[in-house]
Simulated scan of single mutants.
Amino acid sequence: MSEAADEIFATLRQSGQSGAPLYLQLRRSIEDAVRRGLIGPGDALPSERDIATKAEISRVTVRKAVQDLVKGGILVQRHGSGTFVAPRMERVEQSLSRLTSFTEDMARRGMAVRSQWLDRGLYAPSPDEMMVLGLAASELVARVARLRIADDTPLAIERASLSARVLPDPAGIGSSLYAALEATGNRPVRAVQRISAANLGEGDARLLDVAPGAAGLRIERISYLASGKVIEFTRSVYRGDAYDFVAELRLGITADETGRGA
């Protein structure tokens, strides 16, 4: 690491006349070193004090550059251990045109899947759950929350809500919620999803092993039975550095346009 560090600092000194803020120059120097393979996944960075001394800049400047790189997924910080180059992660692509479970998705890719249960229980419904699931205030809602992990990498936090009439014993779910619903004839056949960008809060970031404030994807999904009845209300958070959602788009042809072409 010492030779790579020397080159980073040399590059930083050479770029000192660029006029860009010093923290930005340092960030770019470290990013360039990672891109060129001078420092690789798992390599430790020198301490903030050492970087500040060798680069002849303040520790506040170093800290700002490092925090930017942690939020960008280039570096990771481990409490009590230091700062390291983040492991390279193969991004997962998920189609938006198929309604599948996380377990089915990852198994199709040959990835080993496991879940860490965060919550399985019956509760009084929230106003949102009452509205979406059509529940009365006197009814109960089943909540199932899991950290979804593939090949030992935490990828998503899924928090699903269903009527307790549909899922009276959430603690009895095995590895797949959809498999449990299919066994009772309640597996959804279609869903509407809303995807938005989000910066991960401290709790979710800790579960997903990323820095607080890191980029994430927030997904709200309402799933339906063939009858049109809402069966599931899910709010999930995905790692922004690991997930791509892919949709196929087709040219739409209206009925009027079809008639004119006849």
Rank of each mutant, 00 (worst) to 15 (best):
A10G: 10
R98Y: 09
Q77K: 13
R114F: 03
R59W: 05
E93F: 03
M106L: 13
R91F: 00
R190E: 08
E158N: 06
R63A: 11
G185P: 10
M89F: 08
R206D: 05
G82M: 08
D241E: 06
G228W: 02
A52P: 10
M89L: 14
K64A: 12
S126K: 13
R187D: 01
G110L: 09
K54W: 05
R91T: 13
S2W: 00
M106Q: 10
R250D: 12
V62E: 06
F84P: 10
A183P: 09
Y224S: 11
Q14I: 06
E7Q: 14
V189Q: 09
I74L: 12
G73M: 05
E220M: 10
R98L: 12
V141E: 07
G201I: 09
A10Y: 02
M89I: 13
G240D: 09
A160F: 02
L133G: 08
N186S: 15
P87C: 02
S236Q: 09
L181S: 07
A205I: 05
A262I: 07
T153Q: 14
P168F: 04
E48T: 11
D43P: 02
L135T: 11
M130T: 12
G261H: 14
E7C: 00
E93W: 02
T184K: 13
V189T: 15
N199C: 03
L24W: 01
T61D: 06
I74Y: 07
V92H: 13
T11D: 15
E31P: 01
D169P: 01
R206L: 13
L69E: 04
D151V: 03
A214F: 02
E90K: 15
S126T: 15
K71T: 11
N186I: 00
L181N: 07
S95T: 13
M131E: 15
V141G: 07
R190C: 10
A242I: 03
G172H: 03
R91S: 09
D241A: 06
A180E: 12
L133I: 06
Y238P: 08
